[in-house]
Nucleic acid binder design. Structure first.
Lengths: 210, 210
DNA sequence: ACTTGTGAAATCGTTCACAGCG
DNA sequence: CGCTGTGAACGATTTCACAAGT
């Protein structure tokens, strides 16, 4: 599969385009030009066309793109035209918030289980999910053939959890722990470091002299 | 200030270096070479040196970098050698989780207030912060001279909240709402779209034929 | 002997600009 | 005429490779 050869910025913008197109679709918009799609997203029209051209020819010269079919196409490209099962490891504040976050299901991700090690949280219910002990992790992941996981554990536990997840067959991890995970290839990792994002803001804002 | 001229990838890696250096410092490591710093972070040694070179000469040929002073330098560059006040707008699940997240304070960000519009949450306490009604937002931000805000409201409210924040003097926004915010320049925005991150995972993992 | 800092080369990504289609 | 798809030009970022410092 040539997914690997697609530049990250392109793949990332695909998510952006999809979000915008879904919004347009809800508003009843049926066709759109690269120019129009681009302008609200702070990219250029050429960028939109080039990005889409990596995957095929979806538009019609003189007309633009038809919204609904393009949504289908991008979903297919991103792999979200099917439902992905996802587990959450770590049921602290962040883990619990993620378990309740509705945005995931709307985009084709079904949270099927949550794990923790603390006696305080194991057994508690969040939405309709009961938090299990991490020792049940490998079994459940294999049984449900879960391929994606969200890691929201303390930094010093993240690598161990990652290894366990990989051994159980997980292929992709969204890591909220502020640690760089080591990984033999075959496992895709995305890092979300919340504090680092604030740091980037303070960097760009600078020592604003009032 | 020339912050604007620093490439984003460079600024981003600065956060990465800082995190790693802080970890090394805790372990009592006093000096480190670009090679060593690079290897755990999946970047090259040349990259580390080039990145740091944007800001000055911090190392000694034949020796490497002294950890503690380099931490100070990077904190200064990122602007986190002082404490930034931050408000959170939106006290839903995500907003509340962020309010409890300890990582922010550790990195120099102090959450000073939270806002919402719902009668159910306004007045409730999260940690030591009481959730206020959004109508108190401008006053509080001006009084405390808050420059950074986290937005965790529903997508259709995000633009309005952003405008209010900017009018009240906020300079940087970390936006968790899945919307592209429109902004006249002078306001720095960072977008964190949780669902989009999962989409990127499903894209890279692909339709893994077992 | 080791490691930094840095020009020069290579790679990667974006924008331009236009031929060709509807 | 408007708009896509795309080679070619441009710009940005990374890697190379080595002179110079310790």
């Amino acid at each position: 599969m040539k997914n690997q050869s697609i530049p990250s910025p392109v793949a990332w913008r695909l998510s952006l385009y999809l979000r915008q197109l879904e919004s347009l679709d809800e508003q009843g918009v049926e066709k759109i030009s690269s120019r129009n799609l681009a302008e609200s997203l702070q990219v250029t029209d050429a960028q939109v066309r080039k990005d889409l051209a990596y995957f095929g020819q979806f538009g019609r010269p003189g007309v633009g793109y038809r919204v609904a079919p393009l949504i289908e196409q991008i979903r297919h490209i991103l792999g979200t035209d099917r439902i992905w099962k996802v587990v959450v490891v770590g049921a602290g504040d962040l883990g619990r918030a993620l378990l309740r976050y509705r945005g995931f299901r709307q985009k084709g991700f079904e949270l099927v289980a949550a794990f923790d090690v603390s006696d305080a949280t194991v057994g508690s219910r969040i939405g309709r999910i009961v938090v299990r002990h991490v020792r049940e992790l490998p079994g459940l992941i294999r049984r449900h053939e879960v391929k994606l996981a969200v890691v929201a554990v303390p930094p010093d536990a993240a690598q161990d959890v990652t290894d366990q997840l990989q051994r159980a067959g997980v292929k992709g991890i969204l890591n909220f722990a502020p640690t760089t995970l080591q990984t033999d290839n075959g496992l895709v990792i995305r890092q979300v470091d919340l504090a680092a994002h604030l740091q980037q803001l303070s960097f760009r804002v600078g020592t604003t002299p009032e």
